[in-house]
Nucleic acid binder design. Sequence first.
DNA 1: TTGTGGTGT
Length: 703
Amino acid sequence: MEAIGRNQATAAQIQRLEDAAHNPLTGKEWPQDHHQLLQERRQLLAYRHYQEILDAYHKSQVMILSGDTGIGKSTQIPQLLVYDEYGSELRIACTQPRRLAATELATRVADEMGVVLGEEVGYQIRGDYMIDKHKPKKTRLTYMTEGILLRQLCVDRNLTAYSCIVIDEAHERTVDLDLLLALLKKVISRRKDLKLVIMSATLDAALFQKYFDNCPLVHIAGRSFNVKTIYLREPGPDFAVLAAAHVVDIHQHGEPGHILVFLPGENEIERVCKLVRGETDGLDVFPLYSSLPAANQRRALRSSGPNRKCIVSTNIAETSLTIKDVVYVVDSGLSRQMIFNPRLRMSVLGIRPISQASAIQRMGRAGRTRDGVCYRLYTKEGYDQMAPSTEPAIRCSSVESVILRLVAAGYRKVMDFDWLDAPHPESIARAVQDLRDWEFLDDDAKLTQSGHYAAYCPLDPIWYRAIKTAAKFGCSLDMLDIAALCTTQTSIFLRPSGYQQAADLLRTQFAHPLSDHLTHLNAFNAYMRAREALQERFSDPRSILEEWCMEKFLNMRALEEVCIAREMAARFLKGKIAPSRASVMDMTSVRNALAVALCTHTAIHYSGDVYRTVHENTDALLSPASSLVGRNHEWIVYTTLHKTGGKQQLQIATAINAEWLVDLPFFQGAIMPKTGKGLLRQPQVKKSLDDAKARMEARNERQ
DNA sequence: TTGTGGTGT
């Protein structure tokens, strides 16, 4: 390649390289479509700002790049940096919040640069990579998820393999991103030759600029196409009815072009679909949400008949999936959001207004291929009252694993760490307390050996502890499966609208009378058996497996995720924890291990369907899906405490014996919640444990 | 009488 020193390239030089007879990266001739791709790329706004971006990049260690979606930031900027960084002989990483984006961008950019995917341009996501690992210099640019870079940061705290890190979609503010930025800020102070480019939507750019000592900001103004925004004149009564009416009106009177409707969830979506179908002809209506079987999702995205298409979707179409040729957007202004309440250690799921940033993102979905229209089912005043940006995820989730990773990275002052937005102090305090209860931190908040392992284990910390505990009970492999099932957030059980009762009925074939954890395990084992049997008989059993899952109302995507999580965790645990399995005939040991490991998540039966949690001292019902409903076991452990639709629920529970709790440190007198007068707030807990103790003593005497 | 969306050498 033409000799350009590191960080000395000009836009003209790069253009010359791209116009040359041979590909400067490979020395080979360009692929046939090179010139056409180049022409398309040179139309993109991001490409047209090459020189301005290079100037800012050369001048400063950190820079922020802002601009609307669809201008080619994610594809063009990393390519530009490949040429500019060529002299450094180190790699460039470009992070993405989602796996799909990482793989698709890598594929596209490898094409545009005229190289083979996995050679000069590659990707890395969990359980899958296309990079040249053996020749360190070969892969110049790697698209990866934020989590992958965080992992690499744990191993190599100065990221010595890289000369430049590009953070894309920074405005999405995932938990991993906030942790990554905080750690990168430390890295760049140690490594002055490491460059950082943060790409974000316009609205949040100033925030990042301030965080990085007022570094330069380049804004690429303009968007690919205009979208006209139409507000409601006065607030409407029922957003579902309103949404349906807008769709019908657009279909009857509007110019050609597909319609995309944003609603909070599956229920609302199915309702609107029904309303619209009843009143239109020649309109293909598709629901779209994550628990929809993959085939139905594909149909919604790919179908292209002569009819107009209307897709009624959750937030999944806001960022994760792109629908071609959308001209109309109907935005309800609402979404379901999960917010963590640190005091109750409880997640609350509810329908809330979206942010302005999110409204803009939804609107932009109408202007990807030509000018569009966005109908907002709220007033201009309603829009003005929305929060400018979506609350960063680190502010509304539990932070046990974040704090653990932070301590593992060598930062112990977790309370006054330099965050972009700090987690709630109460969240941090809770996390530190939990990590101590789980023995990952000692009394000086120092990392223990087992805390060190938990930080590197690709499972939630509490599940690493559960596997460790299970090893003592001779069932570490059963617990590994349960851990993978619980760490994978999406449920393996489907309950499609219209088939709820059938789904509930079929679920009972896996039901374990004493445990939802074991119910999940039964279903997972059944899937693994079917998978193995089919793999022996067919070379590509995927579609048959998909059918098998469909019949049993199991979510195959979730089950495959569980498989990957399990394999990765198993690889990590090899040599650290002895593998063992409980007898199929008696899973008592698994329940006992769950009781010990999840002892901070115990609840005692109160009255009727009501349980009261020991730690938070709050009343909650078993989830209606639990196989323990109506059985009134005295003690249970649960995986999560949720609030949905105003009701507090305990999800994924297992019945346990009081005898298993009496000797645990967590249940010794001092830790029990007390009232101001020093009286036990839950005398029933004490009584139950005392009774259990008496029973144990009596048994010992008899022997 | 139940549920938005992501992610992990």
